[in-house]
Measured scan of single mutants.
Amino acid sequence: HNLTITQGKLFFHYNPKLCLSEIHKMEEVSGTKGRQERNDIALKTNGDQASCENELLKFSYIRTSFDKILLRWEPYWPPDFRDLLGFMLFYKEAPYQNVTEFDGQDACGSNSWTVVDIDPPLRSNDPKSQNHPGWLMRGLKPWTQYAIFVKTLVTFSDERRTYGAKSDIIYVQTDATNPSVPLDPISVSNSSSQIILKWKPPSDPNGNITHYLVFWERQAEDSELFELDYCLKGLKLPSRTWSPPFESEDSQKHNQSEYEDSAGECCSCPKTDSQILKELEESSFRKTFEDYLHNVVFVPRKTSSGTGAEDPRPSRKRRSLGDVGNVTVAVPTVAAFPNTSSTSVPTSPEEHRPFEKVVNKESLVISGLRHFTGYRIELQACNQDTPEERCSVAAYVSARTMPEAKADDIVGPVTHEIFENNVVHLMWQEPKEPNGLIVLYEVSYRRYGDEELHLCVSRKHFALERGCRLRGLSPGNYSVRIRATSLAGNGSWTEPTYFYVTDYLDVPSNIA
């Protein structure tokens, strides 16, 4: 807008934040220059609390790290170098490059900038070799853009010569660093050979998330399962459950009422301010606690030095998902009996873990797994792929695949051998790939016309006998059925096997 004052003059007093240069501009645009008398524009009460600059400061050096910015700028000295009290560095987070010096300023003089007072450097006698002032900004957020400017702080001049310097606002972004852990990993099994893994992005990506790394490792069953005799009275049979499938998407929606109208769909109840505040506090606490764990609990591995020492970490090797089922080394339970199943799973520490690289999504279907087997899954978020990966501390989750139908069934015939004193040795093959492992066998036998009897055969007993022995049988026709019990439950009964026990007292003698 054009402003013209045809008559009258300007009068400025007691404006401590208004620089004289701005008042002189007002004289020019209003056409009143030359009308004012000496005392109409006070030299001592206008701009006496402001830094009124008329020179431009330029930054000469900028260096960044993930949490620091090192700045240096060209030296500046007023005509009387004693008038320079120091520099004021202003900075704040700036997602967009549209910041002005006066953003967030209120009537009390406060604003949204963080201000650092910096002492002037030592003055050199040689004007050509003056030290460049600077400042190291610490405690910054990774991968965050900051708006920065600097200006001088000078003393009051009796001659009211307006001098000083100020830089333009520059924008500097800190470097990326390792992201925080992925949030809320959930693993479920939808079949006997697959596990579905879902997660949420890290709360602090500290860069642009480029991919996720998912490692999985087959877990050995508890050692007590191999040692305890679950045929003993009072000892509860062990059981394991597989990871249940995901709930429906509708039930997972946030901010939804727990109660549904019987007449149909209901609208979600909005969260109160107290609920939102509580969630923010919980989120802040979780982030602080995660940072504490990362800094205190997890110790970084030592990389190899120039002395030739090897990095103890196993090298990563990509495998196809079809090879995942046989990740671990199978060892027989008892070496003397080769027909026992290889369900003991000690994992070799030198073995390469299978892994998958996930790009542009937060889910993965891990296939080719062994049925009813526990897996430990390790999830890392990465925001750099080359020249070397920059990934987060791992988040861990466990899951067990679903049982395989008929995996616990005894394959092959049940054979028998009759000894003296009416002892019958029953023999059968253990299931080759049971659900988890076989903890015991149930032997059901009966003599024709009598009630059915049951015998429990422990895992250890089966390994020693290759089956079991029935003792003290009365003469007669017998039928026997056997079924295995694994961590997933009972298998199917075998087809009945028949044998006849004679009275050993009636056996004919070869003595003449």
Rank of each mutant, 00 (worst) to 15 (best):
E388D: 05
S243L: 12
S344R: 13
S304E: 08
V345A: 10
P244T: 11
V501L: 10
K302L: 07
C269W: 03
P434D: 01
T502Y: 14
S283Q: 14
E356I: 07
P354G: 14
T401L: 05
V443I: 09
H211R: 15
D408H: 01
P434K: 06
Q256N: 08
C269Y: 05
K233P: 15
V359C: 13
K317T: 08
D408F: 00
P387N: 15
S257F: 08
S223F: 04
I366H: 00
G489I: 01
C456S: 08
M402F: 08
T485I: 15
V414K: 02
K361H: 09
E388Y: 15
S274F: 09
G472S: 09
R319S: 14
W216L: 13
S223R: 12
G264Q: 04
E442N: 13
E465P: 02
V397P: 06
T494L: 04
E310G: 10
T340Q: 09
E388K: 08
S203Q: 06
R481M: 09
S363W: 07
C269E: 10
G325T: 13
S492P: 12
R318G: 03
R218P: 12
F215L: 13
E227A: 10
T485S: 11
F372I: 02
Y292V: 04
S248H: 03
S284F: 05
D408S: 06
D273S: 12
K432D: 14
S223G: 06
V296G: 05
S304N: 15
H294N: 01
K302R: 12
E362H: 07
V345T: 10
G449E: 15
F337G: 05
E356L: 11
P314R: 15
F215A: 13
L455K: 08
L487N: 08
S248A: 10
R471P: 08
P354D: 15
V501T: 05
R466P: 06
P244D: 11
P338I: 12
E452H: 15
R316M: 13
W216Q: 12
S342A: 14
T494A: 06
L277V: 06
S243W: 12
K317S: 11
A263N: 13
P312Y: 10
T497K: 06
L470E: 02
A407L: 08
P475H: 11
N339A: 11
T497A: 08
A405R: 11
D229E: 03
L369T: 08
R353T: 07
R471A: 12
L487M: 05
V414M: 08
P434E: 01
G489L: 03
E249K: 05
Q429F: 14
S320Q: 04
A399F: 06
P300I: 01
V345D: 10
F285K: 10
E227P: 07
G306A: 08
A395Q: 14
C231V: 05
L440F: 03
R471K: 08
E224I: 07
P349K: 09
A405D: 12
V439R: 13
G322I: 13
G308D: 08
T303R: 11
S251L: 13
R370M: 12
L379I: 12
N422I: 02
P508L: 12
V334W: 12
L293C: 02
S363C: 06
N360K: 15
P475N: 11
N360S: 11
T241E: 05
R286K: 07
R376A: 01
G491Q: 12
S398D: 02
E217F: 08
N421C: 08
V424E: 01
E417Y: 04
H211P: 02
V345W: 09
N435D: 03
G368S: 10
V327E: 09
S262A: 07
V296Y: 07
P238H: 06
A488F: 08
H352S: 09
H416N: 09
T303P: 15
H294T: 02
